[in-house]
Amino acid sequence: MYIVCRQQTMAATTPILRIDLSSQVPVYRQIASGLRILLVGGGLPAGSRLPTTRELAMDLGVHRNTVAEAYRILADEGWLELRRRHGATVLDRRRPASGPEARARWTRRLEGLVAEGLADGQSVEALASALEAACDALREGRRLAEET
């Protein structure tokens, strides 16, 4: 369960990352997913400096390695450049060409996700609508507030 949004704080709009420790999704995955949503949606443009793993771990009240793992996942995907003591910098990542293998992998994951939703009592229509809304928001670069 995670929420990502960009909110009006005291001085200016600041990207906010939210996690839920009671969720069954591991915290490092919540952090990676939350950041990825912001990266895909343009909430964190290339060149943005993220907080250091220590700072983010302090604010979230989690272990530093948890944040480091999330940063590593995104660095492996080509989103972030990690530098010791300097936190992470968002890279100008080109969208990779989509092949049949990637599409098949995502179809399997989506099926799993839809099955989870159905098992959770959601209707097919509601899930389809939520998926469409999420895709639209990301495509348009809108601030996404997503709860899964």
Binding site: I16, R18, D20, P51, L56, G87
Partner: peptide, 11 residues
């Protein structure tokens, strides 16, 4: 509260 949030900017 299990929900936590953090600003994604440096200190």
């Amino acid at each position: 509260t299990p929900q936590r949030d953090a600003e994604l900017v440096g200190r």
